Amino acid sequence: NQESVVAAVLIPINTALTVGMMTTRVVSPTGAPAEDIPRLISMQVNQVVPMGTTLMPDMVKGYAP
């Protein structure tokens, strides 16, 4: 099972992602793949992402898996 990126903390809208904001988990439906964490760092979210929420590609500005 592939791990997806999950918010480790509450991420406010327009916040640039840091490694400490993200964790990985096997979830369904799958979100952004765990191996993309290095690409996701410094990208901004376009909505509030509550802690424990799977990071879906459409939540991150300019990100395409």
Rank of each mutant, 00 (worst) to 15 (best):
M59A: 05
L10E: 13
A32C: 13
Q2E: 11
P12N: 09
E3R: 11
T24D: 08
E3Y: 13
T24K: 13
V49P: 01
G31C: 05
A32K: 03
E3D: 04
A32S: 07
I37P: 01
T24N: 04
V26K: 12
G20C: 12
A8I: 08
T54H: 04
A7R: 01
M21N: 08
Y63I: 03
N1T: 13
Y63T: 03
T23D: 10
M59K: 01
Q2D: 12
V49E: 02
R25Y: 07
L17Y: 06
T18W: 09
P29N: 03
M22R: 07
P33Y: 06
L55V: 06
V60Q: 03
V49R: 00
M22T: 08
N46G: 04
P12D: 10
Y63F: 06
T54K: 01
L55A: 01
N14Q: 04
S42T: 11
G52R: 00
M22K: 08
V48F: 10
E35G: 13
Q44T: 14
V45T: 12
M22I: 09
V5N: 01
M43A: 05
T15D: 03
M43L: 14
S42F: 08
A32V: 15
G31M: 00
T23E: 10
Q44E: 14
M21F: 06
T24I: 10
L10A: 06
N1C: 14
R25W: 08
P33V: 06
V19L: 15
N14C: 11
S4E: 04
I11K: 00
P33F: 06
V19G: 09
M56E: 03
V27E: 05
I37T: 02
P38S: 10
T30G: 11
T24A: 15
V9D: 01
A64M: 14
T30E: 13
R39C: 12
V26N: 12
Y63E: 03
V9M: 12
L17W: 01
P65A: 11
M21E: 08
L10G: 03
G20T: 13
V45L: 07
I11T: 01
P38Y: 11
V5F: 04
Q44Y: 12
M43Y: 00
S28A: 11
M21D: 09
I13A: 15
T18M: 08
A34S: 07
